[in-house]
Design a binder for these strands. Structure first.
Lengths: 237, 237
DNA sequence: TCAAGCAAGATTGCATACAATTTCGCCACT
DNA sequence: AGTGGCGAAATTGTATGCAATCTTGCTTGA
């Protein structure tokens, strides 16, 4: 049995394998199972998933578009190693877009949505109470999913796609520059945001969201370790 | 001599041909030389640029990511035919993001930038005074470039990339749903925005930008020609 | 005359072969 | 011993071949 059968759900595999590989790599990257700087060799990934280099290339190209992977001509693809400046831009973009998302959410949210959000928050809480790296990864994932669910109910597919990219890149940034071991995305803040949404208080919901993102960013160590120019190559393995 | 030598500047051709082909197709699409619904056959595009289907596929995949091209499995790639709903989402996204862009512009703009903006506005004016479809295309392009230049000086590469996608998709939408023959992007409004920027009046600049986008959208005919389900296939040729 | 079925042609999806480029180790030379 | 250069191995970039799928036009039957 090949690894691909363990990783990729069979129904998606038959439809479009490069999409499935993209998802698998994506999850591995935002889970930090693939460290920034790791080389993603076409042949290696291909044999791992039991496909030819052609489909791997397609997957890598998509990831490069999302900013999760950086490709260098004739050298290959590497897991992105975002700079502090890039990290700041990611959060600046999130502050802007999630503000717009909140407006859409307030306009479109249904009681059924609220219920599902509550379930999601329960998931988060559950993972927070557990210990170990697997639970930590699940917590980060669940935390990001909350933001993605908000984007989904906001009713704008374009902003939703932007958010998917930004959340993925945020995970990468948090993995690189995260400081505290505590919740990378305060659970109670999510809860407060949801309360404001349920009460239909758009102004407060947007404010809470901004503060929430500020808190995440404030928990990072984005000092400009200057003179990193050539050292990059060393750090990057 | 092949067509590719006329279209693709030689220096870029040597670097990455799929990028160059993407640019060429992109320009053709937003210039409306390629109508929405047009089929982009791999073999045809390949022979046109004198490359193999492999390279063409990479270019088409990128365009699909940007939303300029829609691909159907085993059927091929087609120039996107955005729905009225998609069009509304494009402009909603622009209202949000260009607001953020304006904040960045006010924070980073230099006198040299202002000067270049004025030159760009001159370009726009020049094309507006000319007649003919070529001049019209140049005008639409120049008008979009103004927004892209703003995004460039705002200092956020992520938002800049989002804007590049949104401006391209806007061109497609305007081509499809544009009503008036008049300037699709009021030149005087650009000028007013630039004035506000020069005076450092962020609030007014952002307001003017929002109104400007509203005007563009208001000039479209986005009636929900319902029951288009199967008729799509007809309209789409 | 019209509709349904079928077969040939065309087009995409994927794998593989070859060319171009880079990387790495070895050897000679100082 | 250290450095520079050369050559082999590895990796990516691109082209092409084959199988699968879709399209299209013709044929056959009612």
């Amino acid at each position: 049995m090949n690894i691909s059968e363990k990783i990729i759900p069979p129904e998606t595999a038959s439809e479009d394998r490069s999409l499935a590989i993209r998802e698998a790599l994506r999850n591995a990257i935002i889970d930090r199972r693939l460290a920034p700087g790791t080389k993603l060799s076409e042949a290696e990934v291909g044999s791992l998933f039991d496909v030819s280099r052609t489909v791997v290339r397609a997957a890598l190209q998509m990831l490069a578009f999302e900013g999760l992977v950086r490709t260098e001509r004739n050298r290959g693809a590497f897991v992105s190693h975002p700079s502090p400046e890039e990290a700041r831009q990611v959060f600046a973009s999130r502050r802007l877009i999630e503000q717009g998302i909140m407006a859409g959410v307030l306009a479109h949210v249904t009681p059924a949505d609220i219920q599902q959000f509550r379930r999601q928050l329960g998931e988060e809480q559950r993972h927070m109470n557990e210990r170990g790296p697997a639970a930590r990864r699940a917590e980060i994932k669940a935390s990001g999913d909350f933001h993605l669910m908000l984007a989904a109910v906001a009713g704008n597919a374009i902003l939703q796609r932007f958010m998917e990219e930004l959340v993925a890149r945020s995970s990468l940034v948090i993995a690189l520059y995260g400081r505290s071991g505590t919740s990378s995305c305060g659970h109670s803040e999510h809860s407060a945001i949801l309360d404001a949404v349920e009460q239909g208080d758009e102004k407060r919901a947007a404010e809470l969201m901004i503060h929430h993102i500020n808190h995440i960013e404030a928990d990072l160590d984005l000092q400009i370790k200057q003179g990193m120019g050539l050292k990059d190559a060393l750090t990057l393995r």
